[in-house]
Write a protein that binds this DNA or RNA. Sequence first.
DNA 1: AACTAGACCAACCGCTGCATG
DNA 2: CCATGCAGCGGTTGGTCTAGT
Length: 328
Amino acid sequence: MGRPPCCDKVGVKKGPWTPEEDLMLVSYVQEHGPGNWRAVPTNTGLMRCSKSCRLRWTNYLRPGIKRGNFTDQEEKLIIHLQALLGNRWAAIASYLPERTDNDIKNYWNTHLKKKLKKMQAGEGDGGEDGGAAGASEGGAGAGATAGGGGKRPAVPKGQWERRLQTDIHTARQALRDALSLEPSAQPLAPAKVEPLPTTPPGCTTYASSAENIARLLEGWLRPGGGGGKGPEASGSTSTTATTQQRPQCSGEGAASASASHSGGAAANTAAQTPECSTETSKMAGAAGSAPPAFSMLESWLLDDGGMGHGEVGLMTDVVPLGDPSEFF
DNA sequence: AACTAGACCAACCGCTGCATG
DNA sequence: CCATGCAGCGGTTGGTCTAGT
């Protein structure tokens, strides 16, 4: 093949992004929508490779990204999905629309792996977490995954989706078990579920990209706030500054434009936000009581009557991958 | 107070699948 | 049908921060 690198090595900037670069990227995406990443560097003047732009957008600037602490429920979900799907972080991330695959991957590698190992070593609970750990430790040992080298299976997308539907079914059951097992977590009692730290009442978790930039700039402009992880860290811990400069859905609209283009987690996130207003109100409403993702997830899991949609399509019709996330 | 080790996270790299000419 | 290019994904690395000594 001898494919040339995605970007010439000369004149391409690497390393951490500056707020200025972020701003350029965001304004471009808001105007043109995500996608056609190859054109981004030339059109924006960014000295970045297209890949880097895409990554920066999907992992950091994309609207709706939640950063910071993972909740117990998220943790459980990740563990079980990992056991079921293997290291298909994008697929896993599609169940956690507010998290990026990179984030989940990092969290898995830094926290959950160790946690599971410890649990295995202790072997006290022996429950399904152990089973999940076993499956995961084996390197996507769960039969549902392609296993092998850990790479994506060489099956056509349709088949992959079909299989994923099966996975979803299995995941549902596992999740039901998980959520009902942990008495301390009490996922079904919203009062018990601690509100998202990033979500002050009345504020949405939906941080638009421009808001992200605003925070970044804030951090940079503030004396002593800049440098390294400063601005990013501030973004990761709180979104309270997100009340300013909310763009009128342009970012979200741009994001949804990507739904037709990409099929990954980002697309799922985007696809579920057909309208900014509905999304924000949904999120804001959920933010008031319980984490939106999990309350919806729970209803998805527990609403057997509603399963018809997914179940019917399980083996006969291929339900679009974005389907599960519509419950969020 | 200084140094070291570990943890964490953002970004990069290489590979793969899909779309297009 | 084949070759090429692009976008996406997962693994890995490098830089920074924090806790411990």
